[in-house]
């Protein structure tokens, strides 16, 4: 027996064990496991819902937008500098100008102003909370910051109209009660928590080992933050800023209240001007009969907003991929 090899002493099996000769085992399911299938079905439908809603929105935009463009050429819509959709006879297409540029420039101008406010303050807050604040301070500070994100936008709108505009009026010489700069600044305040909170998450997720490596080489806190933590968190920070941009472009209440209802093709932020969302709010809440030109214009502008947000998201995905620093 002492000469027995590993395969049980059968040299002809070439090192492999011989085939199984006992009774076969039953490996089929011992119960139907219905609960598992139900759970999976519920989860799949939850995931499908958001996709279906998006598809539904695009589909419902399609017919009215097509109708709009049988009356207005794409060139006039995209490059015209005058927008008078709510003027004149409600059911007449030809006595109105359909150039969307004034609405687009107002939207972009207010978005830009809000970013000028929100990016420095948001990133500053994120750097403080992630790198400088003690755990105790962070515990108190961050929820307060996030409450700011939950303030209803109509409150921000009135803040712009009744507080910020009167303050800026004598300083900058704003004529009238509407301007782009005032809602832009307030919108910036509104986005600060979004950018700060998401950027802070991204920076806190940078491994401690990288910070230690930096400190061990004699770097101070600011150098470590700027040269190591910030680049490593950049993809998350870019995503936070893009989310802020999307919110600014889509924001309606603040601009409807504080930017006025006059479509104006201007680069002067001290003047009031209607944005795309501002027009939608005005037309949809006003006297716009179904089938009228301005009714179709609502869908055209809705589609343009959709395309713009989509473009920004695509650009941001590219940016995030480009700057992603795996660690």
């Amino acid at each position: 027996m002492s000469t027995k090899t590993r395969d049980g002493g059968r040299p002809d099996s070439g090192g492999h064990p011989v085939a199984w000769e006992g009774p076969p085992v039953d490996l089929t399911a011992q119960s139907p496991r219905i609960g598992e299938k139900i759970i999976k079905a519920v989860l799949v439908s939850a995931a499908a819902l958001s996709v279906l809603v998006t598809v539904g929105i695009v589909a419902s935009l399609f017919a009215p937008v097509a109708e709009f463009f049988t009356h207005v050429s794409l060139g006039e819509f995209l490059f015209g500098t005058e927008w008078t959709a709510l003027f004149g006879d409600k059911f007449n297409w030809d006595d109105k100008s359909w150039g969307v540029l004034p609405l687009v420039t107002a939207t972009l101008m207010i978005t830009l102003i809000s970013l000028v406010v929100a990016v420095p303050f948001g990133l500053g807050a994120a750097i403080y909370l992630s790198e400088y604040a003690s755990p105790r301070v962070r515990k108190i500070f961050k929820p307060i910051l996030e409450i700011l994100a939950g303030v209803p936008t109509v409150v921000y709108g009135f803040l712009a109209l009744t507080v910020i505009t009167p303050i800026l009026k004598p300083l900058l010489g704003i004529e009238g009660i509407y301007s782009m700069i005032s809602p832009g600044i307030v919108m910036g305040f509104m986005i600060v928590p979004t950018i700060a909170s998401l950027s802070e998450d991204a920076m806190s997720a940078v491994p401690l080992a990288l910070r230690q490596g930096s400190y061990a080489l004699g770097a101070n806190r600011m150098q470590t933050t700027i040269r190591v933590v910030f680049p490593a968190a950049l993809s998350g920070i870019v995503a936070a800023i893009v989310l802020g941009i999307s919110r600014a472009i889509g924001e309606t209440m603040i601009v409807a209240i504080a930017a006025g209802n006059m479509p104006l093709f201007t680069a002067d932020p001290l003047k009031g001007a209607q944005t795309m969302t501002g027009f939608i709010a005005q037309a949809a809440s006003g006297d716009t009969p179904q089938g009228s030109p301005s009714y179709y214009a609502l869908f055209a502008i809705g589609a343009l907003l959709f395309v713009m947000t989509l473009l920004i998201n695509m650009i941001s995905i590219r940016l995030v991929r480009k700057y992603r620093q795996a660690y």
Binding site: L210, Q212, A219, R227
Partner: peptide
């Protein structure tokens, strides 16, 4: 007094910038 850690912790930068980091920050 420099230090090397348990798990390799290079910065998410180029090889060159990793080495040049210390001289630059100090």
């Amino acid at each position: 007094i420099g230090m090397v850690f348990q798990k390799p912790n290079p910065f998410p930068k180029s090889i060159y910038d990793n080495v040049a980091y210390g001289p630059r920050v100090t």
